[in-house]
Design a protein around this nucleic acid. Sequence first.
DNA 1: GTGGTTGAGTTCATTGTGGTCACAGGCGGA
DNA 2: TCCGCCTGTGACCACAATGAACTCAACCAC
Lengths: 221, 221
Amino acid sequence: MIKVLVVDDDFMVARIHRGFVDRVDGFEVVGTANTGDQAVAALGELSPDLVLLDLYLPDIFGLDLIARLRAVQPDVDILVITAAREADAVRGAVRQGVVNYLLKPFGFEDLRARLREYARRRASVPDQVTSQADVDRVLAPARQLVNRLPKGLSQETADLVTAALRAAPDNLSAAECAEKVGISRVSARRYLEFFAAQGQAEVSLRYGTTGRPERRYTWRT
Amino acid sequence: MIKVLVVDDDFMVARIHRGFVDRVDGFEVVGTANTGDQAVAALGELSPDLVLLDLYLPDIFGLDLIARLRAVQPDVDILVITAAREADAVRGAVRQGVVNYLLKPFGFEDLRARLREYARRRASVPDQVTSQADVDRVLAPARQLVNRLPKGLSQETADLVTAALRAAPDNLSAAECAEKVGISRVSARRYLEFFAAQGQAEVSLRYGTTGRPERRYTWRT
DNA sequence: GTGGTTGAGTTCATTGTGGTCACAGGCGGA
DNA sequence: TCCGCCTGTGACCACAATGAACTCAACCAC
């Protein structure tokens, strides 16, 4: 369970956020705070893994609060949830290493997608990095979210491919998936690779046959 | 011109980095520092845009220095350049919002690519974000992910081989590793020799058996 | 020493998939 | 209708892994 502290000056909003977070599998809210001072105190007491932080607080600006939070608990992660649209706010948040920056207003699905991405990234950090490629993987994966597909991919085809992947008993190669869906191998591969890059699909190599090894894709539960 | 401060405890290394940075268009080194204290002082004096930071400094650990640097100049960006491969170091750096994390040793092209990406990202931040999509664009770094492996080797197989090596209680021969991973002896040896050449694996010879001596590989902690 | 045996290192042609490219067909706006 | 953009495709290399064949270094019997 990932422990979450919700910080928002508006009592009702904090309550809504709490409800949202509790509905996401693997997350639980351990406390809420309405001011910067309360947040610092709650952090010391509850030691959460993640703080949902609104930037507009009565006693301190959210970005300035982050340093104080980190002073108490250096390894705490921050997810900013705010209506602040100034470029400086976003830049400053990124510079402080927030895991995400979600604009109000937002729906439950928006928050869930961000939380899931955070959980996935959190779990996928290797114990030790060996190559620059490992490091890049840790740095990079704040990719485009599921909502928006990159140019060249359509939602309809994406749905077909995911359906085929889920229906497969174990895993599929690009060619097999292409045949099942009824599209070309090139297109199937494009979608499958995209899902793999997103972390929604897992890729494994099958060796043993002569020739280049085959990439086999599995849907991630 | 993006002003850069180079921080490295080794005078010669700092000089080399300085030379690298000065060769990249749009960047200029405004100073170098060899200790944490020097870095803080130089920051206050020179107000650079970016700090190239080694984590191993004589007076302070680099990650702890970042907070001190930010206290002097909150909007300074950090690019970590270090040999530190511990997961905690990478995680901690990401949590503090470093713009990149480059493993030593590296070549000029490696650094140039990272600096260019930084410059591009820096220039492309809009004055004001209007939608969540804008925010996501700022959060999501470029998908460069250049494969640092030489031709003939794939990332997936490399991961499998390293995993097998790490899981081994003491050490592995090429044939044993091949069987564990499920690839051929030839392929296993190719990867193992690559890791040995990189210094990530150590190789020892086992005599005593009839036949040619056996090369046994150990993962380097 | 010397030559034979042994098992691992090394080379290389083969192979079937991976990945890329320019184009086709379709849709929508001018 | 023409034009431009988007999505999917056939065709064409590039490529990673393979296994057979070869080379090599240590051991062993003489």
